[in-house]
C-alpha cells in the first residue's frame, strides 16, 4: 500500500485504504511519546513552515510538535507581523517561503481552496490545516484515529456530529473519512445549520437532539463559530444551549459507552456542559495527543520518495 499524494488537501480525495494507512502509521508514532527521548531522526534537514492566515493555537502547536519530534526544523510564519500585512499576495508570500527552502507548507486560510492553489504553484508539499468551511483533513484523521483506538472498529458505528455543520470544515472532513471507513453519520443541530446536500453523502440530518443521539456510539461536538455567523441562523446562544447543549441528563439518551469528542476550543456551558466535558466519556484531551501522532504520520507519508506523484 502506497500513499500516492504529494499534498494533503482534504479527505475527499483519499481512498479508504489511504486513510487506514495513515491511522496504522499513527499508532507507531504514538509509541514515541512514551520514550525518554521523544524524537526520531526521520525528517532531519527538512523544513516545515507553518503559514497561518487565521488564528490557531492548538493546530499550529500540534504541527510544530509533530515536526520537531521528527527532527524537522519549524518556522512559524506569522501573518500579522509579516509582509502580508504590508499587502503582499498569497503567491508572492509562498514563493518567498519556498525560496527560503521550505519542504512542507502547513497552511490555514479562511478561503476554501487556498491550499489547492498553493499546491499547484509550488514544489513544497502542502498540508491543509483548515481552509474556511471546506476541510481540515488532519482533524478528520485524528478524530478517526481516536474512534479506532477506543472502539476498535468503524463498521456500523453510529457517529453524531453536533453543532454548526454548515460552517464546519471539521464536520466535512469527518464525514469524508468516517463514511469511507464504514460508520453511519448523523449531523445534528438547528435546521438552519444543517446543509441539505449532505444527504447525498449518505448522512442523516436531524434537528431533534434526542432523536439524533439516541443509541449514539460517538458524539462529536462542534463549537458554535461566532466569527462565521453572518446571517441570523439561530436566535441566541442561550437558546442554542437550551436546545442543543450537551448535558449529563441528555447524555443518557446515547449508548452507555458513548465517546464524547470535541475538536476545541471548548465553550463550556454553551455547546457542552462542564461535567460532560470533564466526564468519563470525554476523550477530548486524548484527541489532542493523538493529533500529534497523526500529524507525524502525515508528514512521514508525504516526505521524500521520488516517485510520489
Amino acid at each position: 500500500m502506497k500513499f500516492n499524494h504529494k499534498h494533503l488537501l482534504g479527505l475527499e480525495t483519499l481512498t479508504r485504504e489511504e486513510i487506514e494507512l495513515v491511522l496504522e502509521n499513527a499508532a507507531g508514532f504514538k509509541e514515541i511519546f512514551t520514550r525518554s527521548i521523544k524524537k526520531v531522526p526521520t525528517l532531519r534537514g527538512k523544513t516545515v513552515v507553518n503559514l497561518f492566515y487565521e488564528n490557531s493555537t492548538r493546530t499550529r502547536t500540534s504541527f510544530e510538535i509533530a515536526a520537531k519530534r521528527l527532527s524537522a526544523d519549524v518556522i512559524n510564519f506569522s501573518i500579522s507581523t509579516s509582509s502580508v500585512a504590508k499587502g503582499e499576495s498569497l503567491l508572492d508570500t509562498v514563493h518567498t517561503i519556498e525560496s527560503l527552502g521550505a519542504d512542507f507548507i502547513v497552511m490555514r486560510h479562511s478561503c476554501p481552496g487556498a491550499p489547492l492553489l498553493l499546491a499547484r504553484k509550488c514544489r513544497a508539499a502542502v498540508i491543509n490545516a483548515g481552509d474556511g468551511p471546506h476541510e481540515h483533513p488532519t482533524q478528520g484523521l485524528l478524530d478517526a484515529y481516536t474512534i479506532k483506538e477506543k472502539k476498535g472498529r468503524f463498521e456500523g458505528l453510529k457517529v453524531v456530529i453536533l453543532g454548526d455543520i454548515t460552517h464546519s470544515r471539521v464536520a466535512r472532513s469527518n464525514i469524508w473519512a468516517l463514511t469511507k471507513l464504514g460508520a453511519k453519520i448523523t449531523v445534528a443541530g438547528p435546521n438552519t445549520l444543517l446543509p441539505k446536500p449532505f444527504e447525498k453523502l449518505g448522512v442523516r440530518l436531524c434537528s431533534n437532539l434526542q432523536e439524533a443521539i439516541k443509541d449514539a456510539d460517538v458524539i462529536n461536538i462542534l463549537r458554535i463559530q461566532m466569527e462565521r455567523q453572518r446571517a441570523n441562523l439561530f436566535p441566541s446562544i442561550r437558546e442554542y444551549t437550551l436546545l442543543y447543549g450537551l448535558t449529563e441528563e441528555r447524555l443518557k439518551w446515547a449508548k452507555k459507552d458513548v465517546l464524547i469528542m470535541h475538536p476545541g476550543p471548548i465553550n463550556r456551558g454553551v455547546e457542552i456542559s462542564q461535567p460532560v466535558a470533564d466526564g468519563e466519556h470525554s476523550v477530548i484531551l486524548e484527541q489532542v495527543t493523538n493529533g500529534v501522532a497523526v500529524r507525524m504520520a502525515v508528514l512521514y507519508l508525504l516526505s521524500g520518495g521520488e516517485e510520489n506523484e
Partner: peptide, 14 residues
C-alpha cells in the same frame, strides 16, 4: 528516506 518511494508502515517499538 529521501530515496524511498514507498514508506514502510511504522510499527510501535516496545
Amino acid at each position: 528516506f529521501s530515496t524511498l518511494a514507498k514508506h514502510p508502515i511504522v510499527r510501535p517499538s516496545s
